[in-house]
Design a protein around this nucleic acid. Sequence first.
DNA 1: TGTACATCAGTGAACGCGCGTTCACTGATGTAC
DNA 2: TGTACATCAGTGAACGCGCGTTCACTGATGTAC
Lengths: 212, 212
Amino acid sequence: MTPTPSAIDADLHPVRRTPITRADLLDAALRLIGPHRSVSSLSLREVAREAGIAPNSFYRQFRDVDELAVALIDVAGQSLRKIVGAARHRAEAEHGVVRGSVEAFIEQVRADDKLLHVLLREGTVGSDAFKRAVDRELGFFEDELHHDLVRFAKLRNRPMAEPALAAKAITRLAFAMGATALDLPPERDAELVDQLTTMVRMILVGAQAMPK
Amino acid sequence: MTPTPSAIDADLHPVRRTPITRADLLDAALRLIGPHRSVSSLSLREVAREAGIAPNSFYRQFRDVDELAVALIDVAGQSLRKIVGAARHRAEAEHGVVRGSVEAFIEQVRADDKLLHVLLREGTVGSDAFKRAVDRELGFFEDELHHDLVRFAKLRNRPMAEPALAAKAITRLAFAMGATALDLPPERDAELVDQLTTMVRMILVGAQAMPK
DNA sequence: TGTACATCAGTGAACGCGCGTTCACTGATGTAC
DNA sequence: TGTACATCAGTGAACGCGCGTTCACTGATGTAC
């Protein structure tokens, strides 16, 4: 049997198999992350193993695991922006703006749980670069929310004291509650949605009632 | 020079020096913890080294580092209860209840920073036992706050919708903001106090304004 | 079209290290007689 | 008060392991002539 090099059996050759990409490594890392495995606990060899490459090949893509962790935040950020989009879309549909947004948020947490682990529960541990990257993403979320709050306040002619602060409070609260959702069985999502909805309403009502 | 065993030079003997305690190991662990070292990253050998004992002596006090981590939560919990006490005391003094409590909280975060690292920023990572222990302490905080809210509502005759939920929201918010305080230079504490105070007021005002 | 060569994504082997854990030990202290 | 002995908090040495990192390598692909 003469080996005929071709795209089909390319991966049988000991060398130069399908080239590995950064995305492959990010995927491998995400596969390893779960309720009991945090990003900071991943080892280079472990990720390489999961991706099916030799440990040293890792260096072709990242300087070290920490650089991968930071890159992971970007992916998580995209998922987060999907959340914001979904929430805004949902908000403009029938039921209450707040409830719709909260529902979209929690649903997205469920759907992309691996990714959101990274943002929701690991933002306080890890390297400085990692923390800064997480903070940046949270800031985006906060800004979008702030913008929305101002828009709604004008639209409904219900001015609000310190909308930026209200946005920050809601963001932190949503993330804290979202983090606990990751450990909760999905059947308690409804309860969580109820709680978070009420909490957010408290903040909004309070901000509207406070001296401007 | 004949060695004369006594309490004074007891630690010169190779064996049976001043006995190590669990508290000694907890202290050693706390000394290692900081903005760049998390509880979960501590190794048994590292803690033993810091405490000045042989690695295997560690096992006389704890089954493993995880058990130490859980024990650490108890110590942190005591610090937390000091916070609550201080806040309540401060609250009953001159300036606003909310502002006084928030100030006490942030000050305590500064004073016991090592301990509160554990509760504020590592509650979401770590073993199940660790997470459960942190949750328990947060629950205590929440319950005390709930109780206080109800008391104040009656006292001032300003009833509040869902005080338990308001307590939960305030707790989560305070912890989230407290966690960011750990990374902030102390000169920005005043700003943080202002922000958190306003946020908490939003929740309280909102809870009072909402249909009971 | 064919040949020579540079490039570079992958490789396996090896390194030194810190780790958790085990083992058989030592000798000061407390207790029984 | 002395003596014999059990207890048990500490010890040093050793183990096997997975880790990050380095090294010189290989051989398929792309390019120049």
